[in-house]
Design a protein around this nucleic acid. Structure first.
Lengths: 268, 268
DNA sequence: CGATGGCTTGAGAGGCTTCAATGCCGGTGG
DNA sequence: CCACCGGCATTGAAGCCTCTCAAGCCATCG
């Protein structure tokens, strides 16, 4: 009899997110939660996947923030995607193992490396999982698409506002009504690399937003003071994030599998 | 006995492209080539998929050029992806049917609408096809990623050079040695919308490239005169396009299925 | 308490945009 | 066959947004 302590599966947040977009049965949930993988700690600004590398595993972000980026000849970085806990930044490497990007920890992060073989195996055994993986990659691409628009056709203020709205939605579950006040470990340099701007200009733009009373971003903390105004300035509509398309679903496997921790002395 | 005239299947160019990246057997090839779909003619600058639309079919480009785009509040368009004959610009809509983009014909184009149900069906029956679809979407995303870098971290000349190199590779099969001289129906306005620039500045930049003897782009025709210099200026490396990763494979189904046209009088 | 990394601010330069006018070319109709 | 027309390309001048370079500030940490 297998003992699976689901509460400590690092795939739990990933599964939760997947279940918002894909309908999975108990068997599929169990399969995802019991995927293998070993955790690694990554220091701030450390690259842990390099351009051109041939990958045999994909990464799951367990804690911290991860950026996917490319760079030009001069070495200027452009962050093309931001990934938070529960994301798999390079799930697509399962089908395209030659990395066309690099991954970097934007703050201290812990990730779990999952062998492609295991991912291919569950995808093969469960067509619904294969479809869910494909869907996650498609949503990823939709966000990428929005970033092209953001960088290509909006001025600095609008760009920054848009990015802050996106982060608030994904990271803190922001909704029109709800007040946002969340952790924000990104530096202005990193914001600049996401927006295609210089850090100096990000600073000036941020100051302007602050003076207008839209956001308060200081001491690694983000507070959105006027969501209506900010999202309008940033031309932001959360549809492209494809959050919560399905009715809130419990993780069904839980019912069958959750067990009290098997080890350690009985606690209070 | 089914009569399939493979030579006229509109999916042939698509299959050819897929076979460069995915290994498929004869049965899978046949399944792809006999997908249903009905052709439509689209006039220049006509949108044929609208933002937010709920799709029940995907498109295959048979002829012409198609742009995927988003726009900001002011109505400025940003083209986020360019698709040529043989591409399926919205294959991902199979798993994310809510369109987060719009599609536009950039010149007179003919597309084939393929029901999602048929695509899901082949993907379900043939896991290798499901994987190939997923892979096509992943390559699409890799290109998107490169566009973010292009728009975010390169100046106008570099941006334009990079785009021209990409188009030459995808559209005309450019290789370091080979001379490029191909059809080029895009207007400077459309180039501007891909590059996040104004048409005026695209024109000036193009003139500069011309004066330097790198390209000749006139009368709907693109000639690349100095590939080495242009690709270096554009900081271009075709790895991200994932062209031809597999050894050139014939369409194996052909062997079993190709038949002489069944209708019409016997010709010489 | 000095070192470090990130944030803030200033001044000047430059790339790109805006607005506007002109030129070119292919198509159409008289 | 030519005149006209519309879409696209080209060019100029002026201005703004963003960059570059540089310096000062502030918090954190050993």
């Amino acid at each position: 009899m297998r003992v699976i302590s689901l509460d400590i599966s690092p795939f739990r947040p990933f599964l939760t997110k997947v279940l918002r977009r894909s309908r999975l049965g108990a068997a599929e949930c169990e399969a995802l939660l019991s995927l293998p993988g070993h955790p690694v700690q990554i220091g701030t600004n450390r690259d842990f996947v390099l351009l051109g590398q041939h990958l045999d595993h994909a990464c799951l972000v367990v804690e911290g923030l991860v950026g996917r980026f490319g760079q030009n000849r001069d070495g200027n970085r452009q962050i093309t995607a931001l990934h938070i806990a529960g994301d798999m930044p390079d799930l697509h490497s399962v089908v395209v193992p030659q990395a066309g990007f690099a991954l970097q920890a934007l703050c201290v992060a812990t990730i779990v490396k999952v062998p492609h073989s295991a991912l291919r195996d569950v995808a093969y055994r469960f067509p619904a999982i294969a479809e869910a993986f494909w869907r996650e990659c498609a949503v990823d691409a939709a966000i990428l698409s929005e970033w092209v628009v953001n960088v290509g056709r909006r001025d600095a203020a609008s760009r920054l506002a848009h990015l802050l709205c996106e982060i608030a939605c994904r990271h803190a579950g922001a909704r029109p009504g709800r007040q946002v006040d969340c952790d924000f470990p990104l530096t202005q340099q990193q914001l600049a690399d996401m927006l295609g701007l210089t850090p100096v200009h990000v600073n000036r733009t941020l100051m302007a937003l602050r003076r207008q009373g839209l956001v308060d971003l200081s001491r690694r903390r983000l507070r959105i003071l006027d969501w209506a105004e900010l999202s309008s300035l940033g031309d932001f509509d959360d549809a492209y994030l494809h959050l919560g398309e399905l009715p809130e679903a419990p993780i069904r496997a839980e019912i069958r599998l959750v067990q009290p921790p098997a080890l350690g002395p009985a606690s209070a």
